Amino acid sequence: DFYRCHTCNTTDRNAICVNCIKKCHQGHDVEFIRHDRFFCDCGAGT
């Protein structure tokens, strides 16, 4: 499962994972996106 962060203006080409929300995007306006054509390269392994 992935998310888009409207606060940081993520686009259709990138998304964030749950670990990104916990570490970098906590309290931001995020939108849940189940699956799409992207991956998270944060290195958290999710």
Rank of each mutant, 00 (worst) to 15 (best):
41 D>C: 14
3 Y>G: 10
4 R>I: 07
29 D>Y: 03
15 A>E: 08
22 K>N: 10
3 Y>Q: 06
17 C>V: 00
31 E>Y: 03
17 C>L: 01
25 H>N: 00
4 R>E: 04
19 N>K: 05
26 Q>G: 09
15 A>G: 06
37 R>S: 12
32 F>R: 14
12 D>C: 07
1 D>A: 07
40 C>I: 00
37 R>Q: 15
28 H>T: 06
45 G>D: 10
35 H>Q: 15
46 T>G: 04
2 F>A: 07
19 N>S: 08
30 V>T: 10
10 T>I: 08
18 V>L: 13
5 C>P: 02
27 G>E: 07
46 T>W: 04
33 I>P: 02
4 R>N: 07
28 H>R: 02
40 C>D: 05
41 D>P: 14
45 G>I: 04
10 T>E: 11
27 G>L: 04
9 N>H: 14
31 E>H: 01
21 I>E: 03
8 C>S: 03
25 H>M: 02
25 H>Y: 00
44 A>Q: 10
1 D>R: 02
14 N>S: 07
29 D>E: 13
30 V>K: 04
32 F>E: 11
26 Q>K: 15
35 H>E: 12
1 D>I: 15
5 C>Y: 01
1 D>Y: 10
41 D>V: 11
27 G>K: 07
29 D>I: 06
4 R>S: 04
2 F>R: 05
45 G>S: 12
15 A>N: 04
15 A>T: 10
32 F>D: 09
11 T>F: 04
29 D>W: 02
6 H>A: 11
8 C>F: 00
1 D>G: 12
42 C>S: 01
24 C>T: 15
10 T>V: 10
8 C>I: 00
20 C>P: 01
16 I>A: 05
43 G>R: 07
20 C>E: 02
13 R>K: 09
17 C>P: 00
12 D>M: 10
14 N>G: 07
39 F>I: 06
16 I>F: 13
20 C>D: 03
34 R>T: 15
22 K>E: 04
12 D>A: 11
34 R>D: 15
6 H>Q: 07
28 H>F: 00
46 T>L: 15
10 T>R: 12
30 V>A: 04
14 N>P: 08
37 R>E: 15
22 K>H: 08
34 R>Q: 15
2 F>H: 05
43 G>H: 11
36 D>R: 09
28 H>A: 02
10 T>D: 09
7 T>E: 04
23 K>N: 10
25 H>E: 00
18 V>Q: 15
32 F>G: 14
4 R>K: 08
27 G>D: 14
6 H>L: 12
30 V>E: 02
16 I>H: 06
6 H>T: 11
25 H>I: 00
41 D>N: 13
35 H>N: 06
19 N>F: 09
25 H>K: 02
17 C>N: 01
46 T>V: 03
40 C>N: 07
16 I>D: 04
14 N>Y: 05
18 V>R: 07
25 H>C: 01
20 C>W: 00
27 G>R: 08
38 F>M: 12
38 F>I: 10
33 I>Y: 05
24 C>A: 12
24 C>E: 08
13 R>T: 11
42 C>G: 04
2 F>G: 05
26 Q>F: 08
42 C>K: 01
2 F>V: 03
19 N>L: 07
24 C>Q: 13
43 G>D: 08
42 C>Y: 00
37 R>T: 10
13 R>H: 12
39 F>H: 14
16 I>C: 04
27 G>P: 02
10 T>Q: 08
5 C>E: 03
9 N>A: 11
17 C>T: 03
16 I>L: 06
22 K>M: 04
27 G>S: 07
44 A>P: 09
25 H>T: 01
13 R>S: 14
12 D>H: 06
34 R>W: 06
23 K>A: 08
9 N>P: 11
13 R>Y: 04
6 H>D: 02
13 R>L: 11
36 D>C: 10
19 N>G: 13
39 F>Q: 08
31 E>T: 07
46 T>N: 04
24 C>K: 12
10 T>A: 11
29 D>V: 04
38 F>G: 11
8 C>G: 02
7 T>V: 01
43 G>N: 06
18 V>N: 15
33 I>E: 13
46 T>I: 13
11 T>H: 14
43 G>Y: 12
33 I>H: 05
40 C>M: 03
32 F>W: 12
38 F>Y: 14
16 I>M: 06
22 K>D: 05
38 F>L: 12
46 T>A: 08
28 H>C: 03
27 G>Y: 00
7 T>L: 03
8 C>H: 00
20 C>M: 01
34 R>L: 10
20 C>F: 00
3 Y>N: 07
13 R>C: 14
5 C>V: 00
24 C>Y: 15
44 A>G: 11
14 N>A: 05
45 G>W: 05
46 T>C: 06
6 H>W: 08
35 H>D: 15
11 T>Y: 06
38 F>R: 14
7 T>I: 01
31 E>P: 02
32 F>L: 15
6 H>S: 10
10 T>M: 15
28 H>P: 01
37 R>V: 12
19 N>Y: 02
41 D>S: 12
12 D>N: 13
30 V>F: 09
42 C>D: 03
9 N>T: 10
1 D>P: 14
19 N>Q: 15
6 H>I: 15
41 D>W: 02
8 C>L: 00
14 N>H: 07
17 C>M: 02
1 D>C: 00
42 C>H: 10
35 H>C: 15
12 D>Q: 15
34 R>E: 14
5 C>N: 02
14 N>M: 06
38 F>A: 13
4 R>W: 08
14 N>V: 10
6 H>M: 13
2 F>Y: 12
26 Q>R: 13
21 I>H: 08
11 T>P: 07
5 C>T: 02
6 H>P: 04
18 V>S: 15
43 G>K: 07
14 N>I: 03
32 F>K: 15
5 C>D: 03
32 F>V: 15
37 R>W: 11
3 Y>M: 04
22 K>P: 03
21 I>Y: 12
39 F>R: 15
27 G>F: 04
23 K>R: 12
10 T>C: 07
36 D>Y: 07
22 K>T: 08
10 T>N: 12
43 G>P: 03
45 G>C: 05
8 C>W: 01
32 F>C: 14
25 H>A: 02
7 T>G: 02
16 I>K: 08
24 C>S: 15
34 R>Y: 08
27 G>W: 02
17 C>W: 00
32 F>M: 14
3 Y>R: 01
27 G>Q: 03
30 V>S: 06
31 E>D: 08
8 C>D: 01
31 E>A: 08
19 N>W: 04
11 T>L: 08
4 R>M: 12
35 H>G: 15
11 T>R: 09
35 H>K: 15
